[in-house]
Amino acid sequence: MKLFEPEAILRFLPKLLTALPVTLGIVLIASAAGLLLGLLLALSRVERLPVLSQLAAVMVSFLRGTPVLVQMFIVYYGLPLLLNTVGVNIFSWDKIIFIYITYSLNCAAFFSESIRSAVLAVPKGQRDAAAASGLSRAQAYRRIILPQSAVIALPSVGMTLTGLLQDSSLAFSLGILDVMGRANALGAVTSRVLEAYAAAAILFIALTIVFEQAFRGVQRKLAPQNHIAKGTA
């Protein structure tokens, strides 16, 4: 048996592609739920809502200061026990749901920091001007502050997303057959572990580049100078 057989990588790639929906599913669900929860966390901190703001700060610090791997196992072992005490039985839930919950929470923490600093970066005068124009606070957020914050937060949100894509590979340690889990299984069956890892690496690198390019495209489109240029032209 040859030590490293490059042709095996080509054989493995299509097989790993079948696991891509699992990986992308984790990224998609976690980023959508994370964005929503992250926005709530960020706003409760910016607006200094009593209790909620402190709670959000502790939660964000915990989620950012502990490994996702550990969070995953805490959710997996802890959430069913926690819900059991209030009479909800989720012991039979599919593992992937715990993965979705973990990554959503983790993402929310990172997103909330990006959103918070972006909201704070919008000049205070914008808020005053919105209030002076008779907008309510919710209207001001929706129409004035958040659209500007979104543009500012975009680069770091993009970085979190590529990080999420790579972190999602940890799901395999709970036995999920995502790209990484599939690569591991293929490697074990064919005893061509390194080739399977190489195929997975190629897939992850390609996905990362696609993500980065997509974000760069969106950023260019939303860049404020573009709007100004179009407005004056």
Binding site: T162, Q166, S169, M180, Y197, A201, F204, T208
Partner: peptide, 15 residues
């Protein structure tokens, strides 16, 4: 750098 950044740390570690 762009290759390394594209590979999950976990994958690198196991490789």
């Amino acid at each position: 750098v762009s290759l390394i950044k594209g590979i999950p740390v976990l994958l690198m570690l196991m490789a």
